[in-house]
Nucleic acid binder design. Structure first.
Lengths: 227, 227
DNA sequence: ATTACTATAGTGCGAGTAA
DNA sequence: TTTACTCGCACTATAGTAA
């Protein structure tokens, strides 16, 4: 759906069009969108032809109702803005399992991290990480997660090396009908963005799910810190 | 700002552009918006020229940051969608005082309504209504209010006449620095929309505010029912 | 790989106007 | 008042291409 048709549809929604029929004239719409009456009229015709609205000409205007496909389009737009500005409590992200380089496992097994995990999560992570590869389309969700505040895991030095700060977010992980609660996503503080999400859990998740590389999982990340 | 420039700006925001600089190429943007690389390039130039973004060409793309005017534009869009789909707790509406026909006063003084007001609001309304005339631009807010659930005032019959159902919403009313809490908006259940908001209060508001017709007031309506 | 210019194709806009 | 058609023109999009 083209942006200016969506803008027209939004105007109808603002008049209450998602909840009941509204009486609108093409010149009302025109002045709101700052286009000519003719263009507004054309927009309404197009919205109708593309199945987003019902319309019926009436005395001094038209009676318009937004159809379900129109509401769907508006909601999709809203949910995108919500990722940027809304105060979301959970985010669902989809990814496919892949075998890491063992790096994640190396890092988390460091005592400096491990003691903090146990203290803050109240459970002891299994020694490896569960790595989900994400699609480009999931970047907005990752960004929304990074904008929230997780539990801070402090960095430390060991053997002359620096191990950086990280945020952790509690999450659940799901494949088909099976769900494992009490997992956590680790998000290194410095890296800008990454296409792989590292998850820790008290369980050995690969075995728990009987999973193989390429399997699709959905994780539900909690953005609120529950003490 | 034109809708398709806003759509481009939203894409940048979804990549995290409201919070930090992001690396984006014109072809990334092009494929998201389903336009040519050339058009996407032009959009970015326009967003820059109109002061919505900062940009700097870089290896394999460009580094883009959204400037405050860009964030303002996006937030405005978000707040409009919020009126339609968000679960708002309060809404602020502006209107100008006008003298009603005495009708509102006649209705609310009916015993059938008055006893319900006292029961549900815990105060006795002053005998008249305070009428604020609204601008067309406030319709979305009125619609958002009507979509919420207020306290239901039952209708009744008297002397062969029917007095209809209505919703009431608690609100405060403000002119400049003076605020009066404990007011309520009455919204008749049937009328489709009206350009006048009727407010009741335990006080004689005109006197309280030393107000005259045409004065501008802001009311803050609470959409959550506090028992 | 990029960005983004020029030139052309095409879409969309709005004035005029009929119903 | 409406809606919405035709039509001319302008703006916008894209192909080709240079840097």
């Amino acid at each position: 759906m083209k942006p200016n048709l969506l803008a027209a549809l939004k105007y109808i929604a603002l008049q209450g069009g998602t909840r009941h029929s509204v009486h609108i004239s093409s010149s009302d719409l025109a002045s709101m969108l700052e286009v000519s009456q003719q263009s507004a009229s054309r927009y309404l015709i197009q919205l109708f032809e593309e199945g987003y609205i019902d319309r019926k000409l009436a005395q001094g205007g038209q009676i318009i109702g937004i159809k379900s496909s129109g509401i769907t389009a508006l909601k999709k737009e809203f949910s995108e803005y919500e990722l940027v500005f809304g105060d979301l409590k959970t985010i669902e992200i989809e990814g496919t399992l892949e075998t890491g380089l063992g790096e994640g496992g190396y890092y988390i097994s460091k005592k400096g991290y491990m003691t903090q995990f146990q203290e803050k999560l109240k459970w002891k992570p299994y020694k490896g990480t569960f790595n989900l590869r994400l699609d480009e389309s999931q970047i907005p969700k990752i960004e929304a997660m990074k904008a929230a505040e997780g539990l801070l895991i402090e960095g430390f030095e060991q053997e002359g090396r620096t191990f950086g700060k990280a945020w952790i977010f509690k999450c659940s992980i799901q494949k088909e009908v099976k769900i494992v609660e009490n997992c956590a996503v680790i998000s290194p503080k410095r890296t800008h963005y990454k296409r792989v999400l590292e998850i820790i859990s008290p369980e050995f998740l690969r075995k728990e799910f009987n999973a193989k590389d390429g399997d699709t999982f959905t994780i539900t990340i909690s953005l609120v810190i529950l003490k």
